[in-house]
Nucleic acid binder design. Structure first.
Lengths: 209, 209
DNA sequence: CTGCCAGTCATCCTTTTGGCTGACCCGACC
DNA sequence: GGTCGGGTCAGCCAAAAGGATGACTGGCAG
């Protein structure tokens, strides 16, 4: 692979401070250059620039196209590898980013060196995960997959939003019996015995929020 | 006020990306210069530099001196005005920053112009609050202080941690009847009718977490 | 002094939740 | 074809939570 060539980067982040910081840090690298720095994911999709890697925030303002959705479109149209750079390391975020086809997942509090290394790796189509994210994936893989099923996660998120069993049932178009069954499974999986405890545990384990 | 003079800034943020971004943005301003950019609040306290304004993150890594504590020490020893720059706009964060004596409170997703204006204002010892923070203070002041009593907050935090009424009663050394009374008051104040909904509402209104 | 409010506690009653058990459908996997 | 797991549903019972009401204390403002 062309290790000596200059890596052309497109980045998008809705925080001006972060955008400027990334721009400055990448410019400071010998072998990298910033083609463009956008404030929204849409602009990345619209741009016809040919980059080696796209660095994308996961969460833009409400009503805005999310980083995951943008990643999906980029990879589907055969675009360059996408490196997600975000503040949060929740399970849900990581999973959605991975499912969307991101090659890497980095946290904004990463040291400069890690950032540069991750961009380099992503540009070469090699996975680049933040240490804490790797740790979390390991925990999930080793510690017997404390993962909830998609449906259970859906239920738990509504419960966390304060909905009652009946309300959850209505919103998911199932009977209250089903909701209770899901919750019972969630309880055993998380080792708790009440909805509030389940929400607290899931939040602690970064399964939701 | 010396409007024409160059404003000397010290900044501290544990995120390398944000640090670089602030540095770049401030350097781009005609009338500002960065004296130093630190990764911890301690370094700011130890530095003997004479700045016109200190831009400080509120939350540094665990085990680290927080921005609020640092602000308190700086103002107590008659240091320059402190402008807090952070990601979170929770009630608790804003209040602690204000109590510590910060002259301004800005969010990291502020546009560049707001950031520059805030630094200028803070350097001149004028308050500089982010629009969303102002809004929140207004809401609190006008909308009749939706604040819970200290005891109620204590109860709600335990509930949010997944405790049952009995467990809360045990941990607070009161009867379960008292816990239920507190919860009933919390429910009416927040306009909800279940513990999970109360937790969700409180989190949304930034009363807890 | 009086009233108000936070905090404490109790009792009674209704609703919600959680535990248990059993069942059906369907798609994936062996 | 059999099995297994996810998702769906039901009924029953016990426990927890929630609603309503009333009452006592101590501090603090008017």
């Amino acid at each position: 692979m062309s290790a000596a060539a200059t890596i052309r980067v497109i980045l998008a982040d809705d925080h001006p401070v972060v955008r400027a910081g990334l721009h400055a840090l990448i410019d400071a690298q010998e072998n990298m250059t910033v083609l463009a720095a956008f404030a929204t994911a849409e602009e990345v999709l619209e741009s016809e620039l040919d980059a080696d890697v796209i660095v994308l925030d996961l969460r833009f303002g409400d009503e805005q196209l999310g980083g995951a959705a943008a990643t999906k479109q980029i990879t589907e149209r055969g675009g360059p590898p996408v490196l997600i750079l975000t503040t949060y390391d929740t399970d849900a975020d990581i999973v959605t980013a991975m499912e969307a086809g991101a090659i890497g997942y980095l946290l904004k509090d990463s040291p400069t060196a890690d950032l540069a290394a991750a961009i380099e790796a992503a540009a070469a189509n090699r996975p680049a995960l933040a240490p804490s994210v790797q740790e979390q994936l390991m925990r999930r893989a080793l510690a017997g997959t404390i993962a909830l099923s998609p449906r259970e996660l859906e239920v738990l998120q509504l419960v966390a939003a304060g909905r009652s069993n009946d309300e959850v049932a209505g919103e998911l178009f199932v009977s209250r019996a089903t909701v209770k069954t899901h919750l019972a499974h969630i309880f055993t999986k998380l080792g708790v015995d009440s909805r509030t405890a389940a929400v607290a545990a899931a939040r602690k384990d970064r399964l939701i929020e």
